[in-house]
Design a protein around this nucleic acid. Sequence first.
DNA 1: ATAAAGTGACTTTTT
DNA 2: GTCACTTTAT
Length: 724
Amino acid sequence: MELNRGLNTRQQQAMSAGLGPIQVLAGPGSGKTRVLTFRIAYLISHLAVRPYNILAVTFTNKAAREMQARVEDLLGGEARGLSLGTFHGACARILRIEAEYLPFDSNYVIFDADDQRGLVKQAIREQNLDEKRYRPVSIHASISKAKNDLILPDDFPLQTYRDEIVQRVYTRYQELLLNSNAVDFDDLLLWAAHLLEHNLEVREKYSRRYEHILVDEFQDTNLAQYVLIKHLSSFHRNIFVVGDSDQSIYRWRGADYRNLQRFEEDFSDAQIILLEQNYRSTQTILDTAMAVIESNPYRTHKELFTKKGKGKKLTMHEAFNGQEEGQWIVHTIAETVAKGKADPGDFALMYRTNAQSRLLEEAFLQANLPYKLVGAQRFYGRREVKDVMAYLRLVHNPNDEASLSRVINTPRRKIGNKTILNLRTLALNEGVTLAKVLIDLAKGEESEFYGAFSAGAARALSGFGKLFAGWGDAAPELTPLALMDKILTDVDYQSYLDDGTEEGKDRWDNVLELKRLAAEYKERSLSEFLEAVALVSDQDTMDKDANVPTLLTLHAAKGLEFPTVFITGLEDGTLPHIRSFDDPEGMAEERRLFYVGITRAKNDLFLVRALNRSTYGYQEPTDPSRFLDDIPGELIQGGNPWELGKTYRQRQTHAATNWDAPSTSAPILEPEFQAGQYVRHPTWGEGMVLNAKIEDGEEVVEVHFEDIGMKKLLASLAKLEVVT
DNA sequence: ATAAAGTGACTTTTT
DNA sequence: GTCACTTTAT
């Protein structure tokens, strides 16, 4: 069999490279997924490697499924036994198999973001900490970061008082997870890495099995993932990674594109193969992308080139506000489709934040045109879907307290907070699990616990206990769908949802959709169904068949391509996002995000912004994204008004001052402070002025304080004293 | 125990 | 302006 169909020389070189560590550095659209696919097929067909001995890790399940199909296509047969999936999926499987070495059972459940937040909150409350001061989300972010860096509670570095709080909450949070026989997303990686690191037997088992390991999107691996693949490949050292540091967009999730460099150091004998030729975009789009990414510091220049030709110039558009931004895009799409120049499915609308999708959706709804939105949260985050999943999770793992508290009184069965609290206390005192108490209460008055509750509460709990016990007995014999049906009938979930409104109908439709998904698990276990649902990614929810425009975040766009791309919200504060303004690394990542968006486009690129945008309900004028300054005018229809930040920006500032502040006090024209000056702040002490400028007639001073770092202050409010 | 009304944080990005 | 969560009235 010839396996070089349509591969260029470099790609073939990567496909048929010898053994040992290999790193493929691949620009956007250079066919890295193809290379990965061909490499797997090559290993199986030419090197006689058994699929069972190959592990390939992709970023999403969707990518894994596509790759599996393509490998089988290339081989002209099945590739049974091939391990192909996401990091989280692969870890979940290892943890189930090796549960005997771990502090939880193999039927553990994976807690979602809401469950995780709930648990952190509980931990915070138990420690009598102020939830206002220590926000669960923020504490959880710190815990998550620690986990991605493989830091256990005991090793948590303590530099500030807050660190001590985080450590305490982290410790308790882990206990609570284990009490529920649960893990969170980060734990999947953490426990797996930990197991491979400390259990020689297990490490040898897997590293011997996986003769070949292949990793896609390597620039977005975090330390836990890096350590994981290092251990997994420790026996055979056949590790093949593909990545592009310019497309690293998950720093906030612990990803470190320097893993590419680390790889070169740790595997100094690695072959390095560069893929530069682009097969996706026109040269104009590539030139735009290069112009944008070029401004990032500390990167090696990559020359993106294509044989596709220059193509069309890109279009910039300024809409009056967010509404009109959406309307203009929908109008443009409708017009192009009407002229027969494109299919509706050719278009993608990308945005920085999820909140932006609403106005875009509204524009489609208004025009009565269909669209699809990429985002798992949309469906799996719905109340009714979470309810039904919680029932299933509870049956599968009776220790799952998060699910229990979710469903024990849904639909209402007169079990209020007071009763639940009593139940908890009772279980704690008796040293048994909540599930045990409930199942015992199913016996009714015979139960030793029955008398501990008021008559009404006891009856209500007993009723639920009976249902619960019944599901537990029936579950082993039932498919996930059959179990779901039984539960839905037993609790009469449909009439609970049906309140006569349109919304109630929609909710039931979602339950039906969930049933459809469960129906695919006829041959597979409940455990597999639960795991799949817990680990769906946004991209997994994309159906390619619907021939309609796609709405998605720039993050979700990674790895995809579309004939025409609209990047929306190109305003300072949105892209780049305001939260990255005072962090150079963050700003570099914002730029990469823009770069990823641009390079998704095959033929047409539209850069769109709104002159006014509402945040928190108030509409405010915006500044154009500073990234637009870097795009050469000759690439844009009608030139670039912001090229190198020149004229337009100034003109606009003047205009804004004239309109917005007609009668207030005369604008201060000169900053009072200067960069380099030392100042004293009443609470933060001494610091150095980094920058001082006039914004909206107010002097804004950026000061670096020794203890707390950079702060942006209003000179009129901050009571800064100059220190000499 | 539950529904209604009020409060306050909040928008990055996601497995 | 929205969501989740808390307080309050029934």
